[in-house]
Amino acid sequence: MTALTAETLVAHVDHTLLKPEAATADFDSLVAHAQSMGVLAVCVSPSALPLTDTGDLVVATVCGFPSGAVKSEVKAAEAARAVADGAREVDMVVNLGLIKDGAWDVVEDDIRGVVGAVAGAARDLGLPEADGPEAAVTGAAIVKVILESAALTDEEIVEACRRAEAAGAHYVKTSTGFHPAGGASAQAVALMRQTVGDRLGVKASGGIRSLEAAQQMLDAGASRLGLSGTQAILDQIAG
């Protein structure tokens, strides 16, 4: 295990602000701080879009957040609007109730609807076609699927990953950070990576507040980290 450096950390970070009470000034501060730290992306609530003065930052948002219990056509419309408003990554929440029902075809269709809406909105804007997990860094628009892994069995995590891939998603993601079952775990990240191989990205998010936790997630196979306390971890690296 190679010790995590500041440069390696920031290259994997979606610096995140999803607190319901966040105001315009908070999002302005988020963007400025993200740029000063040199992180890859910022992730904000859809109502905060469009962001200004983002420079080279990738702009991500959420969809069907945080419950996922939203009609598919509403999720698709929300995702399309987010792309029109400047998002290049849309982190959608699966419908956990449908997973628990074993309605896997409906789960897949729900994801496919958002993927299609994002692709359609991107075409309308003349954006390049997404061709892989990190396509957003070239200006394309991609979809990450939030599984809420702490609320699922291992078997459900595996099948949800398979359905996300079949639906055309570009990433699978552990958690919203809002579910009482908990957030990311290295075990879930490893299982997700094992399932999707190198075909999709894996984002670990939810409760990652220490250098040790960030290191564990990356070692388990995460290609992105959703962090609200990025600076605190950088301070731990600096010692």
Rank of each mutant, 00 (worst) to 15 (best):
M1E: 08
M1R: 04
T2R: 13
A3I: 15
L4C: 15
E7W: 12
L9A: 02
A11I: 03
A11L: 06
H12L: 00
D14H: 00
D14R: 00
H15R: 05
L18K: 02
P20L: 13
P20N: 11
E21L: 08
T24F: 09
T24E: 15
F27N: 07
D28R: 10
S29G: 08
S29W: 10
L30Y: 07
V31R: 01
A32P: 03
G38C: 05
V39M: 05
L40Q: 14
C43Y: 11
V44S: 02
V44M: 03
S45V: 03
S45F: 06
P46T: 04
A48N: 10
A48Y: 05
D53V: 12
T54S: 15
G55W: 15
G55T: 15
V59F: 15
V59D: 03
T61Y: 07
V62A: 01
F65R: 03
E73P: 01
A77Y: 04
R81I: 13
R81F: 08
V83N: 00
D85S: 15
G86Q: 14
A87C: 14
A87S: 15
R88A: 08
V90N: 04
V93Q: 06
V93T: 01
G97A: 14
I99M: 11
D101N: 10
D101F: 14
W104N: 10
D105V: 10
V107S: 14
G113P: 00
V114N: 02
V115L: 04
G116A: 05
A117L: 10
V118T: 04
G120F: 00
A121L: 08
P128N: 09
P128L: 05
E129G: 06
A130H: 12
E134C: 13
A136W: 00
V143G: 01
V143K: 06
V143T: 01
K144I: 00
I146C: 01
E148D: 07
E148P: 10
E156C: 12
V158H: 11
A160F: 07
C161L: 11
C161M: 08
R163E: 08
A169M: 12
A169D: 08
Y171M: 10
K173Q: 12
T176E: 07
G177K: 06
S185I: 09
G201D: 06
K203H: 08
K203I: 10
A204R: 15
R209N: 15
E212L: 15
A213F: 11
A214D: 12
L218R: 06
G221M: 04
G221T: 07
A222I: 02
R224Q: 03
R224K: 03
L225A: 03
G226S: 02
S228L: 11
G229N: 05
A232G: 00
A232C: 00
